[in-house]
Design a protein around this nucleic acid. Structure first.
Length: 504
RNA sequence: GCCGCGUUGGUCAAGGGGUUAAGACGCCUCCCUUUCACGGAGGAAUCACGGGUUCGAAUCCCGUACGUGGUACCA
């Protein structure tokens, strides 16, 4: 049987870490088994429609390099891939269930439901469910006569279709990660399958669409585990258990306190979304990993290792290695806390491992956005090669590489002043004069000149290096000073020293 | 409350009856470097608790605690 998996997001906001990891595991599994990865948009809740959210998800997947084989964008044989466009499909399945006694019409209004919950609420049971007991006291096709139901239906009375959970049964299935899991049907409520507006709920839609789209393996977050018995029963009554995909419920990615949320990101200063997301109502911007300066390779690599490892000591994987090594059997059952420090480490490793040429593609726009003009790509690559070891995020290149393209915006004179004196002042002005005369503008020659002059003036060369660095760079950072001088050229070197001397 | 799932250093984790209980991040010390990094060498730090089973338990079983998720005409 062909492996077909799907990621089924509801387009209501930013795509967070956990979502991307679900995509990733789906993708890796599909590619490992030479199967198909489908993206299905679960937009059945019309009250939660968010403009741009769907396109945003596609952009994130594109950035991550995890593009689907079938979707609203790439098309496919099993469309439409947007559930709102599949609306007419679902009702018949719900009706079949009613006809077979596995579901029923319910006419209770939202107010009546509220009353029911209020009336049955006790300290012991703070959230009463519409279950096999309560349904006997509500207005539905189980309590009403056939004629009454017919009448209500004919009048077009708003109603939903609910699953009739069987009594005193145990429903169990084997999860690919957790093994056998079972539930008592008495403790599960009669979930709504078809809403009053005719749209299916997730429960109905996921089963019908997984069947129609020939999904072989269904992976989703652990938060879905409690509703698995509903899906299981639906499969049993609609299509047969032998048709059901194999389930795997992925562990949650936790924040510093509980489930990772947008709030955690704001509170602790790390991104939780793949890419920038701005709320269309409030305009509030939530920073994404991309804009924070992460490489997609690093982001994916880091995500893969939250909840999975191949049993060896390897931690750095390309996407192809992940496809080759990934197996669901080695995915953990327990949730994992997201560690931003480790995430940065992955990014640093990937920056070090990529070539200057590859990095230039990402770095150039970042420099330009910071107002740095890059005229020569070959020069940019030389600079990147020189500084990439000290950049953890791509945005670090602005500080680490910026001074190769323009004079420092400010000079950290405080780093120099405490040990500054006339002798040093004199050294540098003479040094400038000598530099002007220098024929071969090469690292070795510049350094030799510097050291000879220092020796002649009996100043330790080491004590002069820091001031020189600050003059050229603006602060206490960057690669070897003479290398910087060589790269920025004679004129810039002399000019920077001279203008800095005026400040000291 | 009830139900599900989980529990190896601060974090990610290997290990699934006999190990000095790997490794990584972070932290600390030292070396390299008269910047910051990279790199190198070290260090501190762990099997939630209580009962079983067993010659032997981090590993198997039960209980407790804790964590986490669910408990919507949201997904």
């Amino acid at each position: 049987m062909r492996v077909r998996v799907r990621f089924a997001p509801s387009p209501t906001g930013g795509l967070h870490l956990g979502g991307v990891r679900t995509v990733l595991y789906n993708y890796l599994f599909a590619k490992h088994h030479k199967g198909d990865f489908i993206l299905r948009v679960e937009d059945t809740d019309q009250t939660r429609f968010v403009p741009g959210a769907e396109e945003y998800i596609f952009n994130c997947l594109k950035w991550c390099g995890l593009e689907p084989d079938e979707s609203v964008v790439q098309g496919g044989e099993y469309g439409p891939y947007r559930q709102s466009e599949r609306k007419p499909l679902y009702r018949q399945y719900a009706e079949t269930l009613v006809a077979n006694g596995h579901a029923y019409y319910a006419f209770d209004t939202p107010e009546e439901l509220e009353q029911m919950r209020a009336a049955n609420k006790t300290e012991e049971n703070p959230s009463p469910q519409y279950d096999h007991n309560i349904r006997k006291k509500m207005r539905n096709s189980l309590t009403l006569t056939e004629a009454e139901v017919k009448g209500l239906l004919e009048k077009g009375t708003p109603h939903v279709i609910r699953i009739a959970m069987p009594e005193n049964q145990v429903v169990s299935f084997t999860d690919m990660i957790r093994g056998e899991i079972s539930f008592e049907t008495n403790l599960v409520d009669d979930k709504v399958l078809l809403k009053a507006d005719g749209m299916p709920t997730y429960h109905l839609a996921v089963v019908v669409d997984d069947y129609l789209m020939k999904i072989s393996h269904a992976f989703r977050g652990e938060e879905w585990l409690p509703s698995a018995p509903v899906h299981l029963l639906l499969w049993k009554h609609l299509f047969g258990l032998d048709q059901m995909p194999q389930w795997a419920h992925l562990p949650l990615i936790l924040g510093p306190s509980g489930k990772l949320s947008k709030r955690d990101g704001a509170k602790y200063g790390f991104p939780v979304f793949a890419m920038n997301w701005s709320d269309y109502k409030t305009g509030e911007l939530t920073e994404g990993f991309k804009e924070k300066g992460f490489l997609p390779e690093a982001f994916i690599n880091m995500l893969a290792l939250i909840g999975w490892n191949d049993g060896t000591e390897q931690e750095l994987y390309s996407i192809d290695e992940l496809i080759e090594k990934f197996s669901l059997e080695r995915v953990h059952a327990s949730g994992a806390k997201f560690d931003y420090e480790k995430a940065k480490w992955f990014n640093h490793e990937w920056i070090k491992r990529k070539s200057a040429k590859e990095l230039a593609v990402d770095v150039k726009p970042i420099l330009e956005a910071a107002g740095i003009v890059v005229e020569n790509d070959a020069f940019l690559e030389q600079v990147i090669e020189l500084v990439k070891d000290r950049c953890i995020l791509l945005t670090d290149f602005v500080q680490q590489a910026g001074f190769f393209f323009r004079s420092p915006e400010s000079i950290d004179t405080e780093a120099v002043k405490p040990k500054w004196n006339d002798e040093k002042q004199q050294f540098f002005s003479e040094f400038c004069n000598q530099l002007q005369e220098l024929q071969n503008w090469q690292l070795a020659d510049i350094e030799l000149l510097f050291k000879n002059l220092a020796a002649a003036k009996s100043i330790k060369a080491g004590e002069l290096q820091l001031p020189m660095r600050v003059m050229l760079v603006g602060g206490k950072f960057g690669p070897a000073v003479f290398q910087i001088a060589e790269l920025i050229g004679k004129e810039a070197t002399v000019a920077r020293i001279q203008s800095a001397l005026k400040l000291l």
